[in-house]
């Protein structure tokens, strides 16, 4: 505690941060954004489009995390925390999606369609229960 206090009171020395890598990452991110938009205009199979779209997003996100968020060279404890998160996120994705897909045959899926410019806003659903007896 005393050492910490001493540290805290010492004048802060300027530290030079090299910003050049950030600029490269920035350029990379911009290119990837353009790429992901372009890819979406190709009429590939939906699964391929989804896969490529998410792959590019993952690359972009990891660029931001690695360089902007300084995950590169971060303490092990942060890696551990994010690793744990990743495992649980994977479970959270895997189980409900598996369940929903496995249950496709037992559900009546609907087609979600967007009609252009509806004439009026839909009436609010009458959801409340009727007055209680």
């Amino acid at each position: 505690m005393t050492t910490a206090t001493a540290q805290a009171r010492s004048p802060i020395a300027p530290q030079h941060v090299d910003v050049k890598p950030y600029m490269y990452v920035f350029a990379g991110l911009l290119c990837l954004t353009v790429a992901t938009v372009l890819v979406s205009y190709f009429d590939w199979s939906p699964w391929l489009t989804i896969f490529i779209g998410l792959a590019i997003a993952t690359v972009k996100a990891s660029l931001v995390a690695t360089f902007f968020m300084h995950l590169k060279g971060e303490r092990v404890i942060i890696y551990g925390l994010l690793g744990l998160c990743a495992v649980f996120v994977a479970v959270l994705f895997a189980i409900p999606i598996t369940d929903s897909q496995a249950n496709m045959g037992r559900r009546q899926p609907i087609a979600v369609v967007v009609e252009e410019a509806k004439p009026a806003a839909p009436a609010l659903p009458a959801k409340a229960l009727p007055a209680t007896p």
């Binding site: 925390l81 994010l82 744990l84 998160c85 649980f88 996120v89 959270l92 994705f93 409900p96 999606i97 929903s100 897909q101 496709m104 559900r107 899926p109 609907i110 087609a111 979600v112 369609v113």
Partner: peptide, 24 residues
């Protein structure tokens, strides 16, 4: 980390609903 879980849940919900619809 908690925010990651929050948005992961939203994305899961999105994927479940999207993949569970016959067209999107």
């Amino acid at each position: 980390a908690s925010e990651v879980m929050l948005f992961a849940t939203l994305f899961t919900s999105y994927l479940v609903i999207r993949l569970g619809s016959s067209s999107w």
